[in-house]
Amino acid sequence: MLRYSLKRLLSLIVSLAIASVVIFLVIEVAPGDPASFMLGINAQPDTVAALRAELGLDVSKTQRYLSWVGGMLQGDFGTSYTYRTPVTQMIADRVWVSLPLALYALTLSTLIAFPAGIYAASRRGKPGDITVMGATQLGIAVPNFWFAMLLVLVFAINLRWFSAGGFPGWDEGFFVALKALTLPAIALALPQSAILARVMRSSLLDILSEDFMRTARAKGLSRRQALWRHGLRNALVPVLTIMGLQFSFLLAGGIIIEQVFFLPGLGRLIFQAISARDLIVVESVVMLLVFSVILVNFLVDLAYAAVDPRLRSRT
């Protein structure tokens, strides 16, 4: 297990290093110099040069890459070109919206998907199964930002149960903040829960036809007992993988949902940064998102190997 973990860790580090090079190179080929963009077209060349020096743009690309990566390793993402504040601070402020939102959505999606998937699998081919599967087919087809708009229309504008957008901050109290994230989290969770319910169902159905399930039934367990004691645990392996993948989708998908609800999260930050050509912010937020995807996949791999020792021999 240790050997396997170290091997995965090495591959995590290599992936991160390559990803950082790719992100840096892509952003670096961006036409337009941030300094001249900030100062406008009438700026004097020496003013531009001074600003370039101030922003650290006057050194070679290799040097800039190394100082960017070196800084990130120490938690320093550099200084925003437009706001002149540390990017780390800007990200830290926003991450407390985006991360709880993704976790909230993941929780909701699991709470919806598990019962739905188990119910459908236990009633395979019956009307209950067909209804749940039909609903998931629809759930997958619904764009989450459109569903978000419907939620706003019904629960914020018509019923006035929730506010239509904005975020009061965690200082206002846990439940006040959580309430502000509820509609966005539901919107994010719906399509993901539909996918997860389908995975849960098909994974359970695969397990139900296994020999050990027949043995469990043969030794006198009822269908339901066999399902809960032996089936569910084994069916969770593929479900966990999908949940790992979903977390990254939820984090990235949050970028769009944040736009619908005017939430001050990473998504808003990145769009503001794009329009202001604040490339260091774009670079850093993208790196953070990619890092979280790679990290979650790494953790899922480890969880996998812990659950199923057979997987440790594979890479």
């Binding site: 990803a19 961006a30 970028i255 996949n297």
Partner: peptide, 22 residues
């Protein structure tokens, strides 16, 4: 295959953001 893994780490929205930024 490793290249594939790497691209998988970039959700399509993130790729779009990078491309749009450039």
């Amino acid at each position: 295959m490793r290249g594939n893994d790497l691209v998988f780490a970039f959700p399509s929205l993130v790729i779009a953001i990078l491309i749009t930024a450039v």
